[in-house]
């Protein structure tokens, strides 16, 4: 932990407030976060237009390649997301303890559940004050695991399985992800689930952005700037 010891004062003698800060999100985590955000937007947009294509293009087929470009963008963004997901998993092992948080839910811990409940109360206006957290609060950890981490793996796996339909039975994509079609013999089901997965992630994005903004204003620590600088600032010096 590091925090500033000096108290700066301006010309009018007004003193700056003392604020503790902790380095939480390391550079790889922050880069992953923003690359992922961009990939999700790209994938959702192009994916939606693959399911419900834009109005027909006029002219000869040879002069148009709109659907081709949309699909290419989707596949490219998907590959980027997959590679960054692998790097992120790697970083969960070698990074600091906060890098591991979104990959598990400590269901065995009684303290986790009591603090989880407190956080629910805070969001339902029953608790007066939220607790302080260096990393994610228990409710955030819970939501991220079930609405981002799991769905992301699901989307990458089903995505590559669907991609393997085009690349063929001899492709490495089919060798690695063809087992999806042993669970769902009709790939139409995989298309539908992949589509529903998009809506799960989009719903999360809505909640995520709202809560990040709200917490930044209401809670006792910084949220939004932390994902840019990596530093978590605490607004008061009270414990907990």
């Amino acid at each position: 932990m590091s925090y500033s010891e000096t108290k700066a004062a301006d010309a009018h003698g007004e003193q700056a407030i003392d604020r503790k800060s902790v380095y939480v999100y390391e550079a790889p985590v922050r880069i992953w976060h923003w690359v992922n955000a961009l990939a999700i937007v790209t994938l959702a947009l192009t994916g939606y237009f693959i399911g419900s294509p834009l109005p027909s293009q006029p002219g000869e087929a040879s002069a148009n390649f709109l659907m081709g470009y949309i699909r290419f963008t989707h596949f490219a963004a998907g590959q980027v997301m997959a590679i960054f997901l692998i790097l992120r998993v790697y970083w969960a092992f070698v990074g600091n303890k906060h890098a591991r948080q979104i990959f598990y839910v400590p269901v065995w811990s009684g303290r986790f559940w009591s603090e989880w409940l407190h956080e629910v109360k805070w969001y339902t206006f029953l608790a007066r004050q939220p607790k302080k957290y260096v990393g994610h609060n228990p409710l955030a950890q819970f939501t991220m695991f079930f609405m981002v981490t799991l769905p992301m793996f699901f989307m990458v796996i089903t995505g590559f399985a669907l991609y393997s339909e085009g690349t063929g039975r001899d492709s490495w994509e089919f060798k690695l992800f063809g087992w999806v079609f042993s669970i769902f013999p009709n790939s139409q089901d995989v298309h539908t689930l992949h589509h529903l997965g998009m809506w799960v992630i989009l719903t999360f994005v809505m909640v995520h952005i709202y809560v990040a903004v709200r917490e930044d204003i209401m809670s006792r620590q910084s949220i939004i700037s932390s994902m840019i600088s990596g530093e978590r600032l605490f607004k008061d010096e009270e414990d907990d």
């Binding site: 027909s56 087929a61 040879s62 148009n64 659907m67």
Partner: peptide, 11 residues
């Protein structure tokens, strides 16, 4: 298939 890639569909 070329019409699919071109984005030309029966509406």
């Amino acid at each position: 298939r070329p019409h699919f890639d071109a984005g030309q569909f029966v509406e």
